[in-house]
């Protein structure tokens, strides 16, 4: 499939100045507005608008943005996203922004901060908003399905297979070495994250961690307490 997009240059650059006009359509082998319903809407807005511009209220897209193309692009991204959400960002920039020109970089970076504060894995949230920006709710669904399909089948295979080998002495020895490494990988980001907080917020974080760890309190309560505290503060200090 890669051969369909050989060395494609960025196509959205021209429209980033905000003129609002659709980028020149570069149809691939598939028509750009392939989804049901888009033709009818495109017809009502007049004929001088390129068919590619009307994708159900979402910004004009420069290239083939069928649900299949969205799925496939996110499938590729999902396949190479090792280590969670942040690993995904350069892949999205290359595939979606530079190569395909589906969304604009400024828009992407703004929504990325939203994705980080919403619940759920950041990679998932990012797929949802990028997919939505391309083709609405169905675009988001295509993106999410594409992004999780590779890891779903890989982990399913591991789950089916791992139970039968986990008592193997080689496997057990390797995992004995890996378990403390995992704890270190989780703990290390705290160092960088805490640097951005004041000392009293570090104290709050430490107390919350201790309560969850020592008293087996559900982390849900800690999240709610934090949200309520922020909300209260916003009303007290107008």
């Amino acid at each position: 499939m890669n051969t369909r997009y050989p060395f494609r240059r960025p196509v959205r650059r021209a429209t980033e100045s905000g003129s609002g006009t659709p980028a020149p359509a570069q149809p691939d082998n598939r028509p750009a507005a392939a989804g049901p319903g888009t033709e009818a809407r495109g017809g009502s807005t007049g004929t001088d608008l390129a068919a590619t511009a009307d994708t159900g209220g979402t910004p004009p897209t420069a290239q083939d943005s069928s649900y299949g193309a969205i799925f496939w692009t996110f499938f590729k991204i999902g396949l190479f996203t090792f280590g969670g959400g942040y690993a995904m960002i350069p892949l999205i920039e290359r595939e979606i922004i530079d190569r395909r020109g589906w969304i604009e970089k400024q828009n992407f970076l703004e929504l990325l901060t939203v994705a980080q504060s919403a619940p759920g894995p950041i990679a998932l949230n990012t797929s949802v908003f990028v997919g939505y920006k391309i083709r609405g709710v169905r675009g988001a669904t295509s993106a999410i399905l594409g992004a999780i399909t590779p890891s779903f089948f890989i982990i399913l295979a591991v789950a089916m297979f791992f139970a039968s080998i986990k008592d193997n002495r080689y496997v057990e020895a390797a995992f004995k070495g890996m378990r403390p490494a995992v704890v270190a990988l989780i703990a290390a980001p705290i160092y960088n994250l805490a640097k951005g907080l004041g000392w009293w917020r570090i104290l709050i974080a430490a107390v919350a961690a201790f309560i969850v760890w020592y008293f087996s309190v559900s982390p849900i309560y800690m999240i709610i307490i934090g949200a309520v505290a922020g909300l209260t503060y916003s009303f007290i200090r107008k």
């Binding site: 705290i190 709050i204 919350a208 982390p219």
Partner: peptide
């Protein structure tokens, strides 16, 4: 309001990362 609510959750999110590490730090893993 929205921004401050998220600000309030931030130390908790970092605290929960700490809790994740502590919870996995058991005699069975170490």
């Amino acid at each position: 309001t929205m921004a401050l609510t998220i600000e309030g959750m931030k130390p908790m999110m970092i605290g929960m990362i700490g809790a994740s590490a502590l919870l996995l730090l058991t005699p069975a893993t170490f």
